[in-house]
């Protein structure tokens, strides 16, 4: 058993090394020239008011640019409620309707 865990440690070491190398290659947090600040966020910041006529940019993204996402989010809420009601509802409350 001890030999087996030692072998597993030997297997894990290259993986740990690779992950650490990848972390060291990450760009510093919050720098303006990071790859995440690409043309998508620039487009949102500059055109959100013209495209949607909404001052709150979060609402513009959630309810206009990403409207599909929000729609299926509400369907997720519906499914969650449905699952809880089906699981927990007893027959006692059936006559109240």
């Amino acid at each position: 058993m001890r030999i087996r865990s030692f072998l597993l440690l030997l297997l894990a070491l290259p993986v740990i090394y690779g992950v650490l190398i990848a972390v060291a290659e990450l760009p510093p947090y919050g720098m303006p020239d990071n790859p995440v600040h690409n043309q998508v966020s620039e487009r949102y910041i500059s055109d959100a008011l013209d495209d949607t006529g909404v001052l709150n940019m979060v609402t513009a993204i959630v309810l206009d640019y990403r409207a599909y996402d929000t729609m299926f989010e509400t369907i997720v809420l519906f499914t969650a409620t449905l699952a809880v009601v089906i699981t927990l509802k007893t027959r006692k409350g059936e006559g109240e309707r």
């Binding site: 949607t52 006529g53 969650a80 809880v84 927990l88």
Partner: peptide, 29 residues
């Protein structure tokens, strides 16, 4: 302002409120 955004937002708000209340009632009863 915003065209359909305010109407959609009203629907989502009512939806979230009813989800919270339904979960609470179902679990409390």
């Amino acid at each position: 302002s915003g065209g359909l955004i305010s109407l959609i937002g009203f629907g989502v708000g009512i939806r979230v409120a009813s989800t919270m209340v339904t979960l609470f009632f179902t679990m409390m009863e």
